[in-house]
């Protein structure tokens, strides 16, 4: 079953087409990532799905229905750059937000689940940015939603806080929740997402599993061997200090190594290079994912 479905979704501001005729679906129980640089239209898209903005045209279906007030009980949202009330404690914050819903989870259990127990009575403003984001995720879960939207949840976090939050998000999937994630970090999409939609300039360029996309657009893996000039029996390309062999699959690596061994060829170093989503993005758009201006 599809939890989200959009058809020809479009949002226009004056002359700017922020979201340009996009159609996709998100399946129940998956982590779906919308990957793209800043300004690609990710937030506009997610905010239309969250019922914060109205589409200019096109259709949205959430749990098979058009957006309506009742659906708000079933979704949980972490808006981009969200900062909660400065002078409420973690527990008070969660109690406040849970009071807004008909059904809500036990706040103390939620604190336990998101691993905020030690900070439950700490004022929000005194938390580190990593913990603040974790509280933000917890707020998005107070109503035990079936669908969770996380808009750039790890932007501005240090690497360890980012990894920490990734584990929290993986955990949500284990609980059977569907997660819609926007990010401009390709590692994040690659690590977390079951499926990725690559977005650029308001359009979705391609959708698929990360591996699928890499295989499709990133080209084949390459074996790079330094310290030799040639290798018989293989199609190779010379590069500075060594050669480069394009392989079909990872099994070929062992045959290359045994061939080097058999011929007693001495080499300095061997490396396998696989494409990643960043390469896919460059291939598809000619731009880098992380703009210098973003970070």
């Amino acid at each position: 079953m599809n939890v989200i479905e959009t058809k020809e979704l479009t949002k226009v501001y004056g002359d700017l087409v922020a979201v340009d005729n996009i159609s996709f679906e998100v399946r129940k129980g998956e982590i779906f990532a919308l990957l793209g640089p800043n300004g690609a239209g990710k937030t506009t898209t997610v905010e239309m799905l969250e019922m914060i903005r109205k589409p200019t045209s096109g259709e949205i279906y959430l749990f098979g229905d058009k957006p309506n007030e009742k659906i708000k009980e079933r979704i949980g949202v972490l808006p981009q750059e969200f900062q909660s009330f400065e002078r409420l404690t973690v527990r008070e914050t969660l109690l406040y937000f849970s009071s807004l819903y008909k059904n809500s989870v036990d706040v103390d259990e939620l604190i336990e689940l998101i691993d905020l127990n030690e900070k439950r009575d700490e004022l929000y403003k005194n938390l580190s940015s990593g913990l603040k984001q974790r509280v933000g995720v917890a707020i998005a879960l107070v109503n035990d939603p079936d669908l969770v939207f996380l808009d750039e949840p790890t932007t501005g976090l240090d690497p360890s806080a980012r990894r920490n939050l990734w584990e929290v998000i993986k955990n949500l999937k284990r609980q059977g929740k569907t997660i819609f994630l926007t990010t401009h970090y390709m590692e994040e999409a690659e690590y977390l997402a079951d499926r990725v939609a690559i977005m650029n300039k308001g359009k979705i360029i391609d959708i698929g599993e990360p591996n699928e996309l890499i295989e499709k657009h990133g080209g084949k893996p390459k074996v790079k061997i330094w310290g030799i000039n040639e290798l018989e029996g293989y199609e190779y390309k010379k590069m500075k200090g060594g050669i480069e062999i394009v392989i079909e699959n990872e099994k070929e690596i062992s045959s290359i190594i045994s061939s080097l061994d058999a011929k007693k060829i001495k080499f300095e170093r061997i490396e396998i290079e696989r494409a990643n989503l960043e390469d896919v993005f460059i291939k598809l758009t000619g731009r880098r994912l992380a703009d210098e201006s973003n970070n």
């Binding site: 905010e47 019922m51 914060i52 949202v77 909660s84």
Partner: peptide, 14 residues
């Protein structure tokens, strides 16, 4: 608005 709380509230039934 600056802290995203208004947006957040918009997504709740309040």
């Amino acid at each position: 608005r600056k802290r995203g709380i208004l947006k957040k509230l918009l997504t709740t039934p309040l």
